[in-house]
Design a protein around this nucleic acid. Structure first.
Lengths: 221, 221, 221, 221
DNA sequence: CATGAATGAGGCTTCATTCAT
DNA sequence: AATGAATGAAGCCTCATTCAT
């Protein structure tokens, strides 16, 4: 079910194309992401979703049991993509610096291209999952574990300090990325509007995070 | 209005004592924190709060205009304490390492002693503030700025690298603390139950964060 | 909680009197009986009940958890009255003929005075109770048992045939009363409009039922 | 359209047989009876019926205009059979005792063999018909009339008392049968599980009803 | 005939807020 | 100040019915 995080802008649906089977279900999920990102899960109404998807109210309940299931489905079908991408980077070659830059870029770029997706994954699901199914708890844990595994590997290869607490380090790195995104969502920080500048901004931010994470922020003496 | 974050366990209310004026208002705020932390702001009902505070339903509306105002009040009266404490640490003496350890310890300790407070400040307000009053947005920004000022000061004193992007560094540090707390809230990480061990765990975590932040995680070569 | 079945017309509420506590709850139950009798349980809307009771929609949910609980409450608070009256008659003096006439009259008279109550007790609850709580099943069973006990007592006193199957006899008698009422509800049979005639009609019907039940319908030879 | 009430167990559908025309319509009616008996008319969903019949959702609407029409059709096609059988017994020879035993056995046996049918005829239709088409009201009335005619005939032949109120007597007899069935449906009474014993139980019950109806329940003096 | 996706009105329930005492 | 009954708008969900294929 998992689909990759976007690495390029999604082409808009072509209205002239014949509608394939199950397309409505996807429309609902996409619309839900947009609406959840805009209003938050709790304030989002089913009617908002059906309007956004341009389908009938009741059809939502043809595909999903209730509102919670929509959020859970988004999580299941999207989060897996993030996990897969992360693990692919971990298995790939390159120094830990390259891997970390790839990961930070992956996440920040996903946010750049599909801020809705990331807002929902980061803000809504993370916050809602306090009471959610163990499946979700486990999925978040998996991401942590996958990332910790990458750090442990680098540590064994001597690329990271032997005395590093991998668990804390993972929180540090992921927390940094998370808060950068949160700052952008909340408007505490602002990214450039213009495309090239925006791209450069995110790349630079990724670099900065990795650089501080690896070299530290302390002065020379 | 701001009151300091707790640095010691709160004494339990003594039922035999005569109730001072305005005590009910505090009971409501305390109860609201507990309930918001337990169920989240949106799922929390006024009746939950009044039941938790053991006061009459309608009394909540004597002290607060509506539900939003309760959250805003919690934010205003508690967040300010965090900001004050942060600035006091910034103004104080000591190396940046000491200051950062103090800050991390301050936040983690607050969470240790009053997890409800921190859950609400970190999870609920952050999330709600997307749509909230500019006052709240500004308050979050102030915290960021205050922290950035501490980093800038250290940078000027040569304690931090000249080429450090202070904005990113602030996100990194605060994000790390935030995610550590989030992990604990979500149960991804678990702190020891026993008191002394728990205290040590939080102190150690604070140290780790600061150490990675300052020295980096990279190996020696 | 049980209140007696009416043996005389209910005095109308006096609007000038001050409203006692809990009056609204009774208004809701009364209104529910009227509406259930008119439209049937399933077709009755909460808004019908609140309109009939002239109270606000939401107040219904202040007193009752949901629609089912309203029906169950009617049953519990009214059925007990029938059972009590039945047992009182059983304990009382008189021949079995007198007792049976009293019982038939009790039920038919209740229907004459408060057809709504009886419609709901006989039609709605009986029909709904198929899936209802054991409490209701048991209550219906109690009525049967109480009536069978009356018949058994008479049998022991030699007033009824020794070879009579009391269980079947009970069904016969109660079924007769039940079907008479059902016929009236469904309009298959019609009672006189005029009061004295109506009263006579019900008394006569009660007599007929008892007479056939005791003497049989067969001719003399 | 009317088909006889079952006097013998229905053979199960043979899956290997080629489906004859119109078989689907019957499947829907059968399924509807099963579902109405299980959940009641109002709680039964069209999807329950289509699932029970193992046919497509929408096909129900090829054969029936709406849900009400399904119930009405069941009534029309099944009730007529009861009426026909009743009239046949009335026209037939035999003493009134034999006729009444035949009638009671007919109904109880129908319930024994196809409890679903009888539950729906007795409980659902009776209940719904309050608001239903005059056709249904009339049909119920016809059954009453047919039965009253049988009693009147016997009365004229001197087999029943001249002073018998035929209308009340009819209610008594039919009410008895009805309540026996209702008791069984509601679980107030229980019939034996084993086939021969069960058959004997129903025959005996029919005999008892008729015996009390004709000879009365009073003792000898 | 057959399928099952699509539609949308209806109604239950919740709960923030108000009000009378 | 304190109480809790009263109000009613909002929105989730159900499901009979229609429709396109």
């Amino acid at each position: 079910m998992a689909r990759p995080l976007p690495v390029a802008p999604q082409p808009k649906d072509d209205d002239s194309a014949p509608k394939p089977k199950g397309e409505k279900r996807d429309r609902i999920l996409e619309a839900a992401i947009v609406v959840f990102a805009r209003k938050g899960f709790h304030k989002a109404r089913i009617s908002d979703i059906s309007a956004e998807a341009e389908i009938a109210y009741g059809l939502v309940y043809h595909y999903f049991k209730n509102k919670d299931e929509i959020l859970a489905t988004i999580f299941e079908e999207r989060w897996g993509g993030l996990l897969d991408a992360l693990q692919a980077i971990g298995r790939g070659p390159g120094t830990v610096r390259n891997q970390l830059v790839s990961i930070a870029t992956l996440i920040l770029n996903a946010f750049r291209l599909r801020p809705d997706w990331v807002k929902v994954l980061v803000l809504e699901i993370q916050r809602s999952s306090r009471f959610a199914e163990p499946a979700q708890q486990k999925a978040v844990g998996s991401l942590f574990s996958a990332f910790e595994a990458i750090l442990s590997g680098a540590q064994e290869r001597g690329e990271l300090r032997k005395d590093l607490d991998v668990r804390v380090a993972a929180s540090l790195f992921l927390g940094a990325v998370d808060l950068v995104i949160t700052s952008l969502v909340l408007g505490v920080t602002e990214a450039p509007e213009e495309d090239a500048a925006q791209r450069a901004f995110y790349l630079d931010t990724a670099d900065q995070i990795v650089d501080i994470f690896l070299r530290g922020s302390a002065g020379p003496e």
